[in-house]
Amino acid sequence: MTPANPPMPPPAYRGVVGGFQNEEELRGASVLADAAGLRYEAFLPAGDEDLLRALRFRTEKSGVRFWTLFGGIGGGVAAMALTIWTMRNWPMVVGGKPIVSWPPFIQVIFEWTVLLASFLCMAGFLILSGLPNLYLHPAYRPEFNVDRFGLFFPCSRGEEALARALLARAGAEKIETVWDRGLGRLAPPSVEPPS
């Protein structure tokens, strides 16, 4: 960091994070957190449907489905318009067929239905998941993408003791306070308290 840069903003308090060795402990902690009324965010090393359902039963219905549906409908209608409009504007009789002979157009309509559904499926996922976002979550640790299950409580300082006790009770290791130090893009996430 060169001296010409403006001074770094003071680190902001974000909450408490802990890592679990196995999913049973994580589930236990999530049950405790629900009972204590604490909001949480978990980091999982693998997208496991059972675990996801157990942790986030409230958001079973994902908006990605609707994005995909609208993409599919839009793609189909667009392809229908493309084929019919083109054939009417460049009319050419082939094999004595009518100008708008729709059976072969179904193929184009099908392809665009799938294509736009896939595009909007991807767009819906990116919007709902807040990606791309090159500023990694301050509570994220690399081991949460390998062999540890992370549980983060975005709590106030007043709730910190409760959150720490809860994590310790559930068997978490490396319980740390999360500070957002406003580090740059893709910076290694830091959870140590500021010096």
């Binding site: 965010e41 994902s62 489905r65 709902l128 998941s129 976002n133 979550h137 949460f144 993408n145």
Partner: peptide, 16 residues
């Protein structure tokens, strides 16, 4: 893209 495997990212990801 900034993947962290958080629940916020994973739930739409599985659906996707």
């Amino acid at each position: 893209l900034g993947w962290t495997g958080s629940l916020r990212q994973l739930s739409p990801y599985m659906k996707l």
